[in-house]
Design a protein around this nucleic acid. Structure first.
Lengths: 238, 238
DNA sequence: CGGACTTATTGTTAAAACAACACCAATTTA
DNA sequence: TAAATTGGTGTTGTTTTAACAATAAGTCCG
């Protein structure tokens, strides 16, 4: 159906409208060696003091995606960020204060863009290596797991990894990012061959600076070429 | 967050609890040549008379998956069926009578099992070829599209196609199923080679009966072997 | 019973993708 | 100028994929 289909009485309808929904956002970042997730420390019950995914109730006149964007912006000040809906979590008792289902999203942000923390509650937000996250509030461990699996799948089939890197990056940095996400070592020569053969990287003819060894060439993701390829049925595959 | 995090007033909380959620279920079947979807004709406003996906509001103390199973069982009488959550749809105005977000699922059933229609509203349910579905109620065309895309992806990476076939089937039937889902012709020899090399089919040493031509061998999906493979990290890929 | 009809079954080959592997180059620093 | 560090590059054998067509086993009809 969806909804009110004539087979339930009006008095019953009201009891259905006693639920709420929220969005929770798994915000991923990459610091050069680890895949990280942005968590907040809860300042109020329930689960006061526990680490949790940033999230909020969805306003009555707000679209789900908009709510997820709002949560992200309130916490990081960032807009126009890569955002993907993953799954709804709706176990009856997942929220101690009532029936709340939550729609899980993940975002990919450039960790270096996250300098200030505009929202009032943000002073208690911090990055945690995904591999070292402890017990979270609510069912947030399950949500994080699901989003991480979803990211692993996604990153092999669409060039979303670039969302986590600064605009200019080296091939080694890119490889380290993939290794962190996939939790697996990749062969350097094969990786470079494959990535470069896709023609999605623009060689900037610039070199790294300030490193104590041979500087690497800097590249930039060529979004225009990518979108032209996609339009023609090209599929990224790693 | 999830929920009530201390940054909104109680009076505001109540207004959040004026929303409802539903599940909608894209029930796929296969009739030997077309991929089909089970639709119901709405008997009440809104969208009275329009075809729609079967769905219902989620009971206050009911899990999402359970609700999707219930919708399926009420319509078809079937239980223990392949069911997958796909996405939440929550545009503010998607439901004319209030804020209702819906969680979309798809199910895969053996069309031959669907003989009787126990639910009272089921007399108006019928199978429609996916390629010929017209305009549906609500945002159900979008939901159907999304579920179909999800099925196409899934069917290449996990052996779920078997859920749509009777227990005994021929390789040609299996191939036709894949062709219907993927909307693409496959090479017969390559298809058979690939499928058989996975060792997921049990040769029953039986032949088709009642066909006006050379009868084909019958096979059965070997779920035990599949699960043993999965446990060892094997991945189905078509 | 034989020929026409229909679908089932099977193998080869060339091209592409993949996996495994090691050495020299460029820069900084001591 | 030598040591340390990371950057960059090719080849080969193996596997996978894609393209392609002839024979086999039954049924049906005359």
């Amino acid at each position: 159906m969806t909804g009110i289909n004539g087979y339930i009485r009006m008095s019953e309808i009201e009891s259905f409208f006693k639920s709420a929904f929220s969005v929770d956002n798994v915000i991923f970042g990459f610091d050069g060696s680890d895949l990280k997730v942005l968590l907040i420390q809860r300042g109020a019950a329930p689960f006061k003091g526990k680490w949790a995914l940033p999230g909020d109730l969805v306003y009555p006149n707000e679209n789900l995606d908009t709510a997820a964007e709002r949560v992200l912006e309130q916490l990081t000040g960032l807009r126009d960020v890569y955002l993907e809906q993953v799954k709804a979590f709706g176990a009856v008792n997942r929220h101690p204060l009532g029936r709340v289902i939550t729609i899980a999203y993940y975002s990919l942000i450039k960790i270096s863009d996250f300098l200030v923390t505009p929202a009032s509650f943000a002073q208690s937000a911090s990055w945690h290596a995904v591999s070292e996250v402890g017990e979270l509030a609510f069912d947030h461990n399950e949500i994080l797991d699901t989003c991480l699996k979803s990211l692993k799948r996604k990153v092999r089939r669409a060039p979303v990894g670039f969302e986590l890197l600064p605009p200019k990056f080296t091939l080694t940095e890119l490889q380290q990012l993939y290794e962190a996400i996939l939790d697996d070592k990749l062969d350097k020569r094969n990786f470079r061959k494959k990535i470069l053969s896709m023609n999605l990287l623009l060689d900037l003819n610039e070199l790294q600076e300030g490193v104590a060894h041979r500087p690497a060439k800097l590249y930039q993701f060529d979004r225009d070429t990518y979108e032209a390829f996609v339009a023609k049925g090209f599929s990224f595959d790693l």
